[in-house]
Design a protein around this nucleic acid. Structure first.
Lengths: 247, 247
DNA sequence: TGCCGCGTTTGATCCACGTCAACCCCGGGC
DNA sequence: GCCCGGGGTTGACGTGGATCAAACGCGGCA
């Protein structure tokens, strides 16, 4: 028999990598799986990976093998084209999946970068496919996750195509707020993990414009902003600004 | 024994709805499937549907049941929000899939409208899921198709977020050109199925701006345009315009 | 403690695209 | 043939956000 300490550490490791015990199971891939199927998911997550702020989880051009679930921390994804232009395509927080874009060509098409010290679960994709051939619920859920990503992208296209600067920022902040809320954090007060420049890149604006919009919101009493700390003072006002401006 | 005429008609109908005999099988879902698996796909397509120009294939808010493969014709999808704004999120041509956005919530999130008389194959989604649990290649291919849609959307986000009007139109035309080419049509000469307004909506521009960009391209000898008929005279020039402008 | 550097704010000016409006073109109906 | 209507083009003008530039504040480091 092994020592207590070794047993304890082993148990601890197992617990740590098991979906069935993960406190994100209501946010992440396993959402809604019955306990017996959930336990089968435990074999899915092969490795955890820790990243420091600024580290790349993967880079555009690398071979695609796994998708990643954010276990803690905060990420951005961005694409860049030859001529030097780049754009942030998304920000990912706890429980969200990274790497879905790599499935199509088996090569990652964007960069994923940690905006703070983070931890992810790597899910080998072939493994996920074979397990989802066995577990109907998992298969269906995975399809929903991919579809939700498409719907989200359509929302961003809408934002970029039809909204003006302040509407975009309002939409962005309300979206963040709601995602923090879903994770049990305050929807009204949070720290932005990204720079004005990164927000601007995501919203199709220059950093100066983002900064001005923040100032304007503050003047109008919608927000209290101190650097990256944001407090929403008037959610309804933001929502109205987002939807109701111009015909 | 039935009459020759009846037999012939029956055979004809079967041929018409079978993926294994469809001349789109290299573009559509069955791409790359070996013949024996391809034959199993024939049971997948339950119904064909014909649409006239202007008809809705589905509307935002309707229950999601099937995805659709364009068999012939041309579609647009658009989303609209309360305040009246709307945006075209995509144009779909032969062999492309419609309805993937509905999987996430089991409700269609956009409208799909035929831009010319068209025909689609309806693929009941639960059916597709069960078959793709049996046919690995199909499963994998379907995942690739969804992923490609995500990558495409990222491209559009890039376009909307970082490109100026003429760059956007150039990118749009080159994309159309390449898709026509992939279907065996001329990449240099084609008819636009959509109005200037619809192009503008897709590209995040007003119709006047689209029109002016067309005129400019014509002045510069890149294009010959007569109403909706477009002939590309200088592909390299368009490509250069798309990528190389501003730092 | 003071200096340095980077992210941010703020101001002044510019310009690409939106807006508004007139006109044209082409096809369909009478 | 004529008229009518909708899509498209073109022009004049306005404006939101980009660009350029300066200054600020905070954190890190000597």
């Amino acid at each position: 028999m092994s020592t207590d300490a070794a047993t304890a550490r082993l148990a601890f490791e197992v617990v740590k990598t098991a979906c069935s015990n993960c406190n994100l199971r209501e946010l992440c891939l396993p959402i809604g799986l019955p306990p017996d199927e959930l336990r089968r998911l435990d074999e899915l997550v092969s490795t955890r990976r820790r990243l420091k702020r600024g580290d790349h989880l993967y880079r555009a051009g690398q071979a695609f093998e796994s998708i990643y679930a954010v276990r803690s921390g905060f990420f951005k994804t961005d694409v860049l084209i030859e001529d030097g232009r780049d754009q942030v395509t998304g920000f990912q927080m706890t429980g969200e999946l990274l790497g879905l874009d790599g499935i199509s060509s088996e090569i990652h098409t964007c960069n994923a970068i940690a905006l703070e010290d983070s931890e992810v679960c790597a899910i080998p994709f072939s493994h996920l496919e074979s397990l989802s051939r066995q577990i109907h619920t998992l298969q269906h859920h995975f399809h929903k996750v991919m579809s939700r990503e498409i719907v989200r992208d359509h929302g961003v296209m809408m934002l970029l195509g039809t909204m003006r600067a302040e509407e975009r920022l309002a939409a962005f902040l309300l979206n963040l707020s709601q995602r923090f809320k879903a994770r049990g954090y305050s929807p009204a007060e949070f720290n932005l993990r990204m720079s004005r420049d990164e927000i601007g890149s995501y919203l199709g604006l220059k950093l100066e414009t983002v900064s001005r919009a923040f100032s304007r919101f503050q003047e109008d009493g919608l927000l209290a902003v101190h650097q990256r700390k944001v407090r929403i003072l008037n959610t309804a006002g933001l929502r109205k600004l987002m939807t109701h401006q111009r015909g």
